[in-house]
Design a protein around this nucleic acid. Sequence first.
DNA 1: GATGTTTGCCAACGTTTGTTGACATGCACC
DNA 2: GGTGCATGTCAACAAACGTTGGCAAACATC
Lengths: 210, 210
Amino acid sequence: MHHSAATLECQHALTYYNSPMIDDSPQKTRRCDLTRASILSAARERFATDGYERATIRAIAADAGIDPSLVMRYYGNKEGLFAAAAEFDLCIPDLSALPRPEVGASMVDYFLTRWENDESLQALLRAAATNAGALEQMRSIFTRQVTPMVAALCGDPESAPTRAGLISSQLLGFALCRYVLQLPPVVAMPRDEIVKWLGPTVQRYALGTK
Amino acid sequence: MHHSAATLECQHALTYYNSPMIDDSPQKTRRCDLTRASILSAARERFATDGYERATIRAIAADAGIDPSLVMRYYGNKEGLFAAAAEFDLCIPDLSALPRPEVGASMVDYFLTRWENDESLQALLRAAATNAGALEQMRSIFTRQVTPMVAALCGDPESAPTRAGLISSQLLGFALCRYVLQLPPVVAMPRDEIVKWLGPTVQRYALGTK
DNA sequence: GATGTTTGCCAACGTTTGTTGACATGCACC
DNA sequence: GGTGCATGTCAACAAACGTTGGCAAACATC
């Protein structure tokens, strides 16, 4: 239900928080920050399981144990809430130091952990099917994070967008089947088997030829 | 709720009026069949572009040029309408006669034409992200049509579900990126290039080893 | 303790949604 | 011509939605 503080600080840094012991300009943890965080946590869960339109502000507020009007006060409107809930960074690590034949497997492995630890990604995928804002954000992540990574990896700026598109099609497609559609055999696949099957595919899309 | 099986053929072709003088046995096409068809056509379009919740009965009725209450009379309720609009058969051809190394490419090619000619598939994919009925239908298609085909192809009933899941992840993922997310490089890919990239992947999932 | 700000709840709004039933018009058949 | 079904329109319903403004309590600051 609740995100641990550790998962939150990496991607969704709460800027108002600072540790009073170390920081010299102490700004005490205001109460509103707590409810803001609980709203955000509830919103992520609802958006992830219900999608954008079916996740109602009233339900999110009920999950967070507060009044719906508070959501409006803190996040303006529903779109603002979603934007805050789905804001995150893929934090793609630098794979160029790895031995070339291993990049495919590492990529699959990294994205798997990412998908399983961050509800925002599932929320974004579900919402992107119907919500324009989520769609735009998904495109933005593709352009600004995935494509540059692939370009740095394969060294060919011309084919990089296509390669990034192919990799996304496989990784997003697998996430779709495993987390959204929940096709039984895909859900049942153990992690190492996924890497063994998908690794070579991603490897070829990233560095290989048609 | 009820729908005549005759009007919902595989290609949902519009049957025209037939002249009563020549025609002896078949029943005349009643007016209601025309409006039913126009409702279904409008519904497919709306569901495909807007998803389940955002596609309103009122909008569909307006597109079809009739009153919203008629939709209820002919299809019971919104779920019934969606079920009728998304009902279809993949009509997977028999690929086992093909030379083994070509099955991957043919499969990609076949599914591409299917996706581009039938709005129902896009409607189903978009709706499956949020609607339980669409999700169940997607799972059913996977179990009853995709998995048996893969099983007949690879001859191994044990690994068939996993292989079918992998193939679905790639094909659905590509459809997601091309038709729903519309990632620019994926949209821009010409058909033969898609086959060249995806063909070997599907081939390995269907017949190869990890 | 008075004051102003924060934090929260409550009631209500205006709109949109799926859905219903009453009523009008066309068409077929005795 | 009149009866009966088929086809379609209109008005309205109840529920749910996002959203708003007012008001009560908690808190901080002097």
